[in-house]
Amino acid sequence: MVFFTSVSKLDGRTYKILLAMVITAIGALTAIGISIGTIYLPVITLITGALFVQYMRRRTNEVIYDERTTIINHKASAAAIAGYTLGVTAIGYLLVTMGSTIDPAYKTMGYTLLYTGCGLLLLRAMFYYYYGWKHGG
């Protein structure tokens, strides 16, 4: 009861500390789940963590997310997409080349990586056109 009373008055700093703890716990439990070979632990952890973060967000007495954080998120996402795409393209190309010379298994891995990069770009393009259509222009 005391916990929920204090949670209902979360300030921005407490929210950030709790968020860091939740993210750490999610990462650790997901890693444990993968290492012991169960899908349930990561899934349950992710869902519980997301719900808890949503709950905390609603209980904060400060504005945590606003137009500036939205822009920061957009820029971070764009940079992450660019970085990931460049990375998988380079590594994928390298693996495909290694597949031709060293071991054919590398070729499969390389193509898989290249296809995930293409898939991400395709998804990004679809959302780009969707939001372009939704917001006129």
Binding site: E62, V63, R68
Partner: peptide
Amino acid sequence: LAKSVGVSRQTIIA
């Protein structure tokens, strides 16, 4: 000011 206009204090600082 941040509370009055509905943004975070960091945004006002920025």
